[in-house]
Write a protein that binds this DNA or RNA. Structure first.
Lengths: 151, 151
DNA sequence: GGGAGATTGTTTCTTTGTAAACAAATTTTG
DNA sequence: CAAAATTTGTTTACAAAGAAACAATCTCCC
């Protein structure tokens, strides 16, 4: 009778070892855990920051377009924007030429706040993948961009 | 007054373009969407399959070890295993040498089921990243493995 | 041996995100 | 032009996943 597995590195993943979807999921979880270790106390989550950052760089962007680019579903986007509005960070405007749509802008105070948050956010982003060499890191970034279709 | 953004590819992501954590998140969402397009009707989700697959290859594995390897939190693992048990796919055994732990095994019917599911699951896994060349795909896999610390 | 602390799993509560049904406005098409 | 189909955002209901508190067991150390 063989010994059952007791420790993590004994575990045999077999074909899962080279399954791209599986590896991406693990990478995503690792990134998230790493974020909350380092920036958990900052009060701004990765999703919130990226939404604010994109609005900063694309003032008046429509909710639907923002959602498409960040791959956030409409139903969820509504809640995110609503919460940001409640915090006084964004304002919504219904354009005349399409009264279904909503155009989103940062409030003046949010502009400075996001610019300051960018300091620690991108410092954190840079610290991800520190077990890779600079070349590997850049290669991984490029491959992910191509994989996602962001080129 | 400049025109607000109307279409997805006009959106300026600025520094987010090379932010590894952000790209990983997008990749993960893309994988998930792709999975449900192709395999949504199969009745077995990626998380469930990977749990069953790892139990198949590591019979008697402990719940905690399984969770560590797949990066699934204990609280969530309890629910997953419970659901699989309710479907008659796994059985739980409390070992004599540590009566806190739970050892998990596939039921005989689950063994054949998982082996069959592996056909379409890994076919799907192989279809991920079809916009990459074979070399790029392999490179991405290797980099992700190193990034995760799976070597 | 026995108490302090760690590990393992469970339960409960909350957060995050999705799905489906809906309403309003716009576009398409016959 | 008017009916049909589509787009956009919201609401409601639900599923997936994590956090914290807890109970049971085990380990360590005196």
């Amino acid at each position: 009778m063989d010994m059952p597995i007791r420790t993590t590195d004994e575990v045999d993943l077999d074909r899962l070892n080279t399954a791209l979807g599986f590896l991406v999921r693990l990478a995503q979880i690792k990134v998230y855990e790493h974020f909350f270790e380092e920036c958990g106390e900052r009060g701004l989550k990765p999703g919130e920051f990226s939404v604010l950052w994109v609005i900063l760089h694309n003032p008046g962007i429509r909710q639907s377009v923002l959602g498409q680019r960040l791959m956030i579903k409409r139903a969820h986007m509504t809640k995110l924007i609503r919460a940001l509005e409640d915090q006084g960070l964004v304002s919504r405007r219904i354009p005349d030429d399409d009264r279904r749509a909503v155009e989103i802008t940062l409030t003046p105070s949010a502009v400075t706040m996001v610019q300051q948050a960018a300091d620690w956010f991108f410092a954190y982003e840079g610290s991800i993948g520190s077990n890779l060499t600079a070349a590997e890191r850049q290669q991984l970034t490029a491959l992910l961009r191509k994989f996602i279709g962001l080129d």
